[in-house]
Design a protein around this nucleic acid. Structure first.
Length: 575
DNA sequence: GCCGTTTTCGGCCCGACTGTTTTCAGTCG
């Protein structure tokens, strides 16, 4: 009973490893099949163990009899003899070599065979001893590239948090757009889809002067290094070691190229197959007849989707999670828009661990055009964050009243981010909570409870008097801390029936609930609230990241409480 | 290994850039 559930990520990782090892062995086509299945499973909105329990593994796209059998083995036994055998044939570190930019299965195996290299450490030693340049097909340039790639690999194990690189990427996009020779410029790739983490930045430009624009791009002051420079493709490295790719195309192909380079890969492969059904082919140059003679559509993305019999699919949905079927049936959601929010539900001030005063936060919110800002500082139980005592809460209330008297065009509400104790109760007296405008309950300690205990804790919290919202419901920190064990479906059901909000915390390291969770929460009838958890006036800009999560989670404006005006919000809170 | 109103067998997405090559393989996205 207490055994750990195998996660979708673990299954995907197993399948990816099989794909790599088969590729190293020179096996044809199978690697693609394993990779395709892995990608689908990685993005599933449901636990694969549940699907396996229902005996429906083979209904997953790309999973057939053989892969389903291997998944069942991993779930039942916790290991996979088939993978163990593959590993025996291939030294551990050879696969690691493929993590280097420019090294694929052929070169990895070649290096292993010729120099006995079985790991990135080995390769670094060999390259420094100038052994690599002596190999057939390699020379000094290749050797240097390997050393460069090793440096990048050492510094960059992780993907970038969207919220931390979006601003820089948009700045480069803007510079390109303002260049005289550039007709159109747009961020593409996972940034345009607003994935929570991104591997690199892709920017697309339309121009009649490719060399001019490419050279301008590679000469940007932000460029610390130029990886590659061609008339159609360039790559530079900017701050934080972020790789920025530029694609240069002609204006009439902009729509096709934007569609292609926005991805996701899985979405595009499905679209390409759909094009083949019409006896067309889809590439970055357009939707065309199979011989390439006649162009069907290419200037605007919308035309491509239309020609394929689909409603336009917003970039945030392009993950091959059912959006193509929905576009065909006309059942895509009318997504919440970036300008739809009237205010923020959760922000901190100097009263607890924030950097700015109530007034400074209020002015910053007003300058963003918001109608309201809910200040939800930490309660006393969180000493590390200078939580507020009962007396502090009263004094802060007076300060908020003063700010509201002095400032126009913004209303500050007094909330609190109270701690959910281990028994599920809130660490602030009801007599205090009663007088506050908004109460967020968050788990800030005791993360290591069992799933059953944690679920009881959160469900109990949902039933506490005056509670309005559960803050960052899973507690995860992206790439740093796993979510705590929690039966989210039980939480969704309870939150929906009691009418408590679940937060979409828009802070870049949290994004909690995540896109996939939002979709499940919505299906369970939960109302969501988007908030920044700002600890600084600058953090208020993260609200759009929360909207991005909501859009990726298929949410409409009506699913999110702060698409409502202050009067409507107050009315809802009184219910 | 998966998949099928073109197929239960025979296909499997397409194009650019790089380096080391005399015409292309490997890698990437």
């Amino acid at each position: 009973m207490a055994e750990k559930k195998v996660s979708n990520a673990e299954i995907a990782s197993t399948l990816f490893e099989i794909a790599d090892l088969l590729e190293l062995k020179g096996v044809a086509f199978k690697p693609r099949a394993y990779r395709s299945a892995a990608q689908t499973i990685e993005a599933l909105g449901e636990d694969i163990t549940d699907i396996a329990e229902r005996g429906e593994l083979e209904e997953i796209a790309g999973v057939g009899e053989s892969i389903a059998g291997k998944i069942r083995t991993v779930i039942d036994q916790g290991n996979l003899p088939y993978l163990d055998r593959l590993r025996e044939d291939m030294p551990e570190g050879v696969r690691e070599l493929m993590e280097l930019e420019g090294i694929g299965p052929k070169k990895a195996l070649f290096l292993h065979r010729k120099l006995g290299i079985s790991g990135i450490d080995d390769l670094e030693v060999a390259a420094k001893k100038e052994k690599v340049r002596e190999l057939e097909g390699f020379a000094t340039t290749s050797e240097q590239h390997i050393l460069d790639a090793i440096e990048v690999w050492k510094e960059r194990h992780e993907r970038f948090l969207l919220g931390y690189i979006l601003h820089d990427a948009e700045a480069i996009e803007r510079k390109l757009r303002e260049h005289d020779a550039v007709k159109k410029a747009c961020l593409a790739g996972s940034i345009r889809r607003r994935r929570e983490t991104v591997g690199d930045a892709d920017i697309l430009v339309a121009t009649d002067e490719p060399e001019t624009v490419s050279h301008f791009f590679c000469s940007l002051p932000e460029a610390r290094r130029v990886v590659m420079e061609g008339p159609k493709r360039c790559t530079i490295v900017v701050a934080r070691n972020l790789h920025v790719d530029l694609r240069v195309i002609e204006e009439e192909q902009f729509g096709a190229a934007l569609q292609y380079f926005t991805g996701s890969k899985a979405h595009n492969i499905t679209l390409r197959k759909r094009a083949l059904d019409h006896d067309w082919k889809l590439s970055e140059y357009g939707l065309a007849t199979r011989d390439g003679g006649d162009i069907v559509a290419r200037e605007h993305e919308e035309e491509i989707y239309e020609a394929l019999g689909l409603a336009f699919i917003p970039p945030e949905l392009r993950e091959n999670r059912g959006e193509i079927e929905a576009a065909e049936e006309g059942t895509l959601p009318a997504l919440i828009e970036y300008g739809d929010l009237w205010g923020d539900l959760h922000a901190h001030t100097k009263w607890s661990d924030g950097a700015h005063s109530v007034r400074e936060m209020a002015e910053a919110a007003r300058d963003r055009g918001w109608e309201y800002l809910i200040i939800s500082d930490h309660s006393g139980g969180l000493a590390i964050a200078h939580g507020l005592s009962e007396g502090d809460i009263r004094t802060q209330g007076k300060e908020i009243e003063k700010v509201n008297r002095e400032l126009e065009d913004i209303t500050v509400l007094q909330g609190i981010e109270a701690n959910v104790d281990k028994d599920g109760t809130i660490d602030v007296k009801k007599s205090i909570l009663r007088d506050l405008d908004f109460v967020v309950g968050s788990v800030h300690s005791g993360f290591k409870m069992t799933e059953k205990e944690m679920t009881e804790r959160v469900v109990t919290a949902i039933h506490q008097d005056h509670l309005n919202m559960i803050g960052h419901p899973t507690g995860r920190l992206i790439q740093k801390r796993e979510p705590y064990a929690l039966d989210l479906d039980a939480v969704f059901e309870e939150a929906a029936s009691v009418g408590v909000l679940l937060e979409i915390n828009a802070f870049p390291t949290r994004l909690d609930l995540s896109d996939i969770h939002c979709r499940r929460a919505h299906d369970a009838g939960v109302m969501l609230g988007i908030s920044t958890d700002a600890h600084d006036t600058d953090h208020l800009r993260f609200l759009d990241l929360g909207v991005a999560v909501a859009r990726r989670g298929w949410l409409e404006a009506g699913d999110v409480i702060n698409t409502r005006s202050l009067d409507e919000l107050r009315a809802w809170l009184k219910q």
